[in-house]
């Protein structure tokens, strides 16, 4: 299986949403603050979203499993320089090769998508939720 760039971008969004469902206040503070923040996921799915505002630890195992590729690690650098728009570059390490994908998204659109049913869908990613996928695709771009 070869994940498309859209699938990879949606995965980045899902990771933020899983962090958000783990700790809403701190995740919102990290992603809304001007400047940069990082996300790192190791091969066991242990994830960390961090900035000067704090650290959110969460499990990303189910989210990465949905890509269908063995992943050694994921590193994402985000920069929040302009109003609402967050730019990012993600590197997905598949052991002897790496895949890089970049993009930008509206953080408020992503946070407001993460409510009720949508956040519950983020927690149980093995059961794909079509409306949720389409919403994330629109936010993250094709």
């Amino acid at each position: 299986m070869s994940p498309t760039r859209t699938e990879l971008r949606i995965t980045i969004a899902k990771l933020i949403e899983v962090a958000y469902s783990e700790n809403k206040e701190l995740t919102a503070k990290i992603v809304r603050q001007k400047g940069s923040f990082k996300m790192i996921v190791d091969q066991d799915g242990n994830a960390r979203l961090s900035s000067q505002a704090g650290i959110v630890n969460f499990s990303a195992a189910d989210t990465l499993d949905s890509i269908g590729v063995n992943i050694k690690s994921v590193s994402v650098n985000f920069s929040n320089d302009k109003e609402r728009k967050i730019k990012y570059t993600a590197i997905i390490d598949i052991k002897v090769a790496k895949i890089a994908v970049s993009g930008s998204f509206d953080i408020e659109a992503l946070i407001t998508s993460c409510s009720g049913v949508l956040c519950r869908a983020a927690k149980s990613l093995k059961e794909r939720h079509n409306a949720y996928e389409v919403e994330l695709k629109n936010i993250m771009g094709n």
Binding site: N70, K95, V96
Partner: peptide
Amino acid sequence: EYLKEVDLTDEKSLLPLKL
């Protein structure tokens, strides 16, 4: 060295051969 990291029995491990 490259092939050492690819588990041929696992479909999810084959992407590095097909990038």
